[in-house]
């Protein structure tokens, strides 16, 4: 099989949510001398792009996207140990989680998965995450981006506290902060001085890439 064929099949296996095939093809890619980075970007990410577009167009729903992502992670598990981490090649490092007091994590999981697929180094802190933990992890991992979500009006002010806390600690400028979740809006993002808001997971990843470009320009 040619390089292109392997990568195309890997992308298709992601699109079809075929877990075992994904792992197999990831291994096949490595055996054929394709770098782990290329296999992720040209195989997994290409597949997830199609999945994400279909989701955005309401052709598929959350269950399908979760199944595709499970398949993608099977390939990533094979590829990641072979990834030569050169931060310069990666789009960025992101810390992601659901704000303290909230356990609704479906949306956050979708964003994490698309960030993974887009080649980000992602540190997922899970749900009901203490604000300090976001900051500690972001510092420790020298993250570019903090992405947080919440579904509830009662926990959205945690996002404001997070931004304020970053300011108090004098590290606000080190990280881009993006927010999401059904209780929040662009207006709210402006109000709390977050760097961006996205309405859904697909837009979330586009926003993350934009924020990273902005960050590069600023430096």
């Amino acid at each position: 099989m040619s390089r292109e064929e392997i990568l195309k099949q890997l992308a298709d296996a992601v699109i079809n949510g075929e877990e075992e095939l994904c792992a197999e093809l990831a291994q096949k890619a490595l055996n054929a001398g394709i770098s782990a980075y290329d296999a992720i970007m040209e195989g997994c990410a290409e597949g997830m792009k199609v999945v994400s577009d279909r989701y955005e167009n309401c052709e598929i729903f959350v269950p399908e996207i979760l199944v595709c992502s499970t398949a993608m992670y099977k390939a990533m598990d094979v590829l990641k140990p072979h990834l030569k981490v050169d931060k310069a090649d990666m789009p960025g490092t992101a810390v992601i989680g659901v704000i303290e007091g909230d356990v609704h994590d479906i949306g956050k999981n979708l964003v994490r998965m698309l960030l993974d697929a887009a080649g980000f180094v992602v540190h997922d802190l899970g749900r009901d995450v203490q604000l300090e933990s976001f900051i500690e992890k972001a510092k420790e991992s020298e993250a570019d981006l903090i992405a947080c979500s919440t579904l509830m009006t009662t926990t959205m002010f945690g996002m404001k506290d997070l931004v304020d806390m970053l300011k108090d600690k004098g590290v606000r400028e080190q990280f881009k902060v993006m927010i999401g979740g059904s209780a929040v809006s662009q207006e709210f993002a402006n109000k709390i001085a977050a760097d961006g808001y996205a309405e859904d997971a697909a837009r979330g990843v586009k926003l993350a890439k934009e924020l990273i470009r902005e960050r590069v320009r600023e430096r």
């Binding site: 949510g17 959350v62 269950p63 399908e64 979760l66 199944v67 499970t70 994590d105 479906i106 999981n109």
Partner: peptide, 11 residues
Amino acid sequence: EINKILIMILR
């Protein structure tokens, strides 16, 4: 657990 239930819907 809802994330797992959603995957089960297809699997």
